[in-house]
């Protein structure tokens, strides 16, 4: 087996894992199972980022999505009694047929478009990006987006707390 074949095999494995997680999230009845299969997708994506040489983004993906977003989702599910309640007889919304048709059409359009377009087929070596240079870029050319993201996150934090805060006195924990 050549290294390229091993690489392709591993890529296929990770890609199938990623997509299977997303598919399970789409089809499973139990909400917590959906959330857990979603973490498989997030982890698979992180591995894909790592394989593309984006080490910092891949690790951030694990930290943010598995460490925070997935936990947030399961907490929300438990707080809204989505896990304990009997699953609905029908978990799909009223327009689910149209929804799946739309999704399949979108998938075909995307894949058709990218198979027809001229894409760079070969690439150089995996770029070695030091964390230091990411930091310098964030503090240099990208300082304005960084500040805006900082404000956005602060606003989101305060906003989420205020929105989810119980309003009536009787509801306070």
């Amino acid at each position: 087996m050549s290294p390229a074949m091993i690489e392709g095999f591993l890529f296929g494995l990770i890609a199938v894992m990623t997509l299977a997680g997303a598919l399970a999230a789409a089809l499973l009845r139990n909400l917590v199972h959906c959330a857990l299969s979603l973490t498989v997708t997030f982890a698979g994506l992180a591995v894909l980022y790592l394989s593309l040489g984006a080490q910092f983004v891949g690790l951030s993906q694990i930290l943010v999505y598995i460490g925070a977003v997935a936990i947030l989702v399961v907490f929300a599910i438990l707080l809204t009694h989505g896990a304990g309640a009997l699953p609905h007889l029908f978990v799909a919304s009223s327009g689910w047929r149209t929804g799946w048709v739309a999704a399949v059409v979108v998938a075909f359009v995307f894949i058709g478009a990218l198979l027809r377009s001229p894409l760079p087929q070969s690439s150089g070596p995996v770029p070695q990006i030091a964390v230091r240079s990411i930091g310098q870029a964030l503090m240099g050319a990208y300082v304005l987006p960084l500040e805006i993201v900082a404000i956005l996150l602060t606003v989101a934090l305060i906003g989420a707390v205020i929105v989810a805060m119980p309003t009536e006195q009787g509801e306070s924990k």
Binding site: A26, L31, V73, A76, I77, G82, S93
Partner: peptide, 30 residues
Amino acid sequence: MTLTPYLIVAALLFALGLGIALTRRNAILV
């Protein structure tokens, strides 16, 4: 590896995300 497989995975993932958002009943899953 080339670019195309990654883009196909991304396209399928997008379609699956769209499918979840359009077909599930629960707001969290959307």
